[in-house]
Simulated scan of single mutants.
Amino acid sequence: MSVLVVIPARFASTRYPGKPLVALKGADGTAKTLIERSWLAAMSASGVDRVVVATDDARIKAAAEGFGAEVVMTATTCRNGTERCAEALDVLAAQYDIVVNLQGDAPLTPAWFVEELVAQLRAAPEFDVATPVLRTHGAALNGFLEDRRAGRVGGTTVVFAADKRALYFSKEVIPYRGKTYADDDETPVFHHVGVYAYRPAALQRYIAAAPSALEDLEGLEQLRFLDIGVPVLCVEVEARGRAFWELNNPEDVPRIETMLFQMGLN
């Protein structure tokens, strides 16, 4: 089955304008832009046939082509990364069995997250969309709670059924917890990792539907799938000692740079 990875990137982010071109220092002090680090993460995954950056901005296009990425220009009217992936697939006019959306704000995404996601979707014909989830330990959960107390929108959490079908995604921390957790404690909270694998048919259903009320309220594109009855498979992945964090706010830059240093990633 052929696999296309699309990295959607837009300059006009509501929370952090210009985010794809923000420089992040690695362990050796070398600075690379967020979009380059996300592209490198995508390129490191095995079993991928093609990786493209999808953007509507000439500055991002120039930067991406500067480090060797293939770029697909998409419309400014794309409301989110899933719509941009659908348009990129249309522009490329090529047939792929699976399209992976590796969002351009996830430079710490390990290759095995993408590989496991594709493998699980291949093995589950009853699902047309899959996304990785990561069980949090207390340190990550406490980071989410700290963000919420400070009025920052941090990581997304998810709850799912016994068959791994997603029930709900939220920028609030779900489910309710009646206790606190030490940094090393395993918790019942799952961090939703901002990567998706779709079959092309699911992308067509998505763009044919209007944005849902919950999608607009939460600012989470994947809720449209749940609203129109497309089941989303939650694939539990293992961190294997790697830290994971998305760049959502300017305050996340030093946090991610610290993680790059600790993991020895240049």
Rank of each mutant, 00 (worst) to 15 (best):
Q95R: 15
E238R: 14
L92F: 04
V133A: 13
A123T: 09
E251W: 08
D28S: 15
R165D: 01
I60N: 08
M43W: 01
R59E: 14
Y168P: 00
F127S: 09
A197T: 03
D216Y: 01
I35R: 01
P8R: 04
A106F: 00
E238Q: 14
I228K: 02
A27R: 07
T180P: 01
R165A: 13
A64V: 13
F144Q: 13
G178Y: 09
A111N: 11
S38K: 08
A41M: 10
A86T: 07
M43K: 15
A239D: 15
V6M: 09
A243P: 00
A69M: 12
V133H: 04
L260H: 12
T187H: 06
L214V: 12
A119M: 12
S2Y: 04
D163V: 02
V100L: 08
T74Y: 01
D184G: 03
D97V: 04
A31L: 03
K32M: 11
A119V: 11
K32Q: 14
A12P: 00
E36P: 06
Q95C: 03
D252C: 14
L21I: 10
E221S: 15
E186G: 08
G143C: 01
A54V: 04
E146D: 14
R84P: 00
P110Q: 12
H192I: 00
T55G: 02
G143T: 14
W112G: 00
D56M: 07
R59K: 11
T74N: 06
T82P: 00
M73G: 05
L203P: 05
D163F: 03
R177T: 15
